[in-house]
C-alpha cells in the first residue's frame, strides 16, 4: 500500500495559522478589544492585553464587568467556530486559498450567555480558554474560564449556548 508522505511541518503550521487569523481577523469587535489567540496544535488560548479603555471602575481600578463578559463570549465563539473549521481544513475540504479569499463558514449565534464573576479583574493582561461540552447539529454548549496572573484562581467563568450555523448543502 502506498501512503501519502506526511505534509511538511511548516506547511501544516502555515495553513492552521492562516485559518485562525482569517477567523479572528474578520471580526471588528475582536480587534476593538485587542484580543488575540495563541495556538498550540488545536488548543487555543485567548489573550486580552490590558488597556485603559477596558476599565469599568476607575477608583479600584478594575476591568469592566462587560469587558470580562465580552472576552469570555469572544473566546467561546472562536473556540466553537475553530472546532467546526478544523475538520474542514484538515480534511482539505476548505483550502488555504479559500480561507484567504474570505470563504469562512458562518459564525454560530449566541442563544444565551451566563457569567459568574469570582473576583474583580485587575488592570493587567487576561487569558481565557473555552471547551465545547456539546456540539450538535443545531445547538452547542460551551464552557469558558478566564484568569490573570494565576491560572488556579480564575476571575470569571461563563456558560454559553449557541445556535449552529446552517451547513451548506453539498
Amino acid at each position: 500500500m502506498v501512503r501519502k508522505p506526511p505534509e511538511a511541518m511548516q506547511d501544516v503550521k502555515m495553513r492552521r495559522d492562516a485559518a485562525l487569523s482569517a477567523l479572528v481577523g474578520g471580526v471588528p469587535y475582536i480587534q476593538f478589544l485587542g484580543i488575540s489567540f495563541d495556538r498550540r496544535g488545536d488548543e487555543l488560548t485567548a489573550l486580552l492585553p490590558f488597556d485603559q479603555k477596558l476599565i469599568g471602575n476607575p477608583f479600584i481600578p478594575a476591568l469592566h464587568g462587560g469587558v470580562t463578559a465580552a472576552f469570555l463570549e469572544v473566546t467561546a465563539i472562536i473556540e466553537l467556530s475553530w472546532s467546526l473549521l478544523w475538520e474542514d481544513f484538515e480534511s482539505g475540504a476548505l483550502s488555504l486559498e479559500d480561507l484567504q479569499a474570505g470563504a469562512l463558514p458562518r459564525l454560530p449565534k449566541t442563544i444565551d450567555f451566563s457569567v459568574d464573576y469570582m473576583r474583580s479583574g485587575l488592570p493587567r493582561d487576561a487569558y481565557a480558554r473555552a471547551r465545547v461540552t456539546r456540539s450538535g447539529r443545531r445547538y452547542a454548549s460551551v464552557q469558558v474560564e478566564a484568569w490573570q496572573d494565576n491560572h488556579d484562581r480564575p476571575f470569571a467563568s461563563g456558560n454559553a449556548h449557541f445556535l449552529m450555523p446552517r451547513r451548506e448543502e453539498s
Binding site: 474578520g26 471588528p28 469587535y29 462587560g66 465580552a70 459564525l107 449566541t110 450567555f113
Partner: peptide, 18 residues
Amino acid sequence: QLVGDPKTGVIHGGAVSA
C-alpha cells in the same frame, strides 16, 4: 467597530453584554 459578524454587520453580543 463593534460588529461581531462581518457578513451581517450585526453588533457583537459582547458589546450588548457590556
